[in-house]
């Protein structure tokens, strides 16, 4: 698998700093599970955090009774076979996505939102972007739309064509508020992707605009 389209460095940096909202973090973390190149960049981002912490003036004294209470917990044994790693795959969704979705692509209750598109909304907390999984039927074009803010799309299966480029498993398509586009799924199979957008999509056509309140798309 060769990933060609990565999240921008500013996103990897913010993920390392811990300042992204939960939905965007989910998308970046899922990309990281598939992308050793970006994991190296995350290592760099975290070493910046470590360096900053090293430069900190120690702030007051910390109560040393904390040493014993921290050790009151038993050290964790090797690999706990919890639900996080249950099953053997092959999985379409790497962690942490599988945990958020409550299963792999085939296990989910997809809801048709019209035009050959099905979706599953994912539950994330806090303000900011919302995350959802989309399944776009092979060869289907998404109605033309723009975004109130940035939209990130991580392809997990099939392919997506957008503004002259193809996106495949692991690739991230980033569209900011200035972009009006109508991405299309490749013809070979349904395209399954994870999208994180920080505002509702704005459809250009009349019909999708009428449907929007009904489907919450």
């Amino acid at each position: 698998m060769t990933i060609e389209h990565h999240p921008g460095d500013e996103l990897l940096l913010a993920y390392g700093a811990g300042t992204l909202d939960e939905a965007t973090s989910l998308l970046v973390a899922t990309h990281l599970a598939l992308c050793p190149r970006c994991r190296r960049r995350l290592d760099l981002a975290e070493s910046i955090g470590g360096e900053w912490m090293n430069r900190t003036r120690a702030n007051g004294t910390v109560d040393e009774t904390g040493i014993d209470s921290a050790m009151a917990f038993a050290p964790e044994d090797d690999e706990p076979a919890g639900p996080a790693t249950a099953g053997s795959g092959p999985f379409l969704f790497p962690q942490p996505l599988r945990g958020y979705a409550g299963g792999d692509a085939a296990d989910l209750g997809w809801r048709a939102v019209g035009g050959g598109i099905r979706q599953v909304r994912l539950k994330t907390r806090g303000k900011g972007a919302k995350a959802r999984l989309l399944s776009i039927a092979a060869g289907t074009r998404v109605p033309e739309h723009s975004h109130g803010g940035e939209e990130l799309t991580l392809v997990l299966a099939g392919s997506l064509y957008d503004r002259g480029k193809w996106y495949r498993r692991g690739d991230v398509d980033a569209a900011d508020a200035s972009v009006v586009h109508r991405p299309a799924a490749g013809p070979e199979q349904d395209c399954i992707c994870l999208a994180a957008a920080d505002a509702r999509l704005k459809f250009s056509g009349v019909i999708p605009r009428l449907l929007q309140p009904l489907h919450g798309f």
Partner: peptide, 22 residues
Amino acid sequence: IDVYRRERRPEFDPRDPAFQPD
């Protein structure tokens, strides 16, 4: 993130079978 923002921190899991190793 967990305590101050009451959000989860999504992280990849190198033990996951779908994880792409280095």
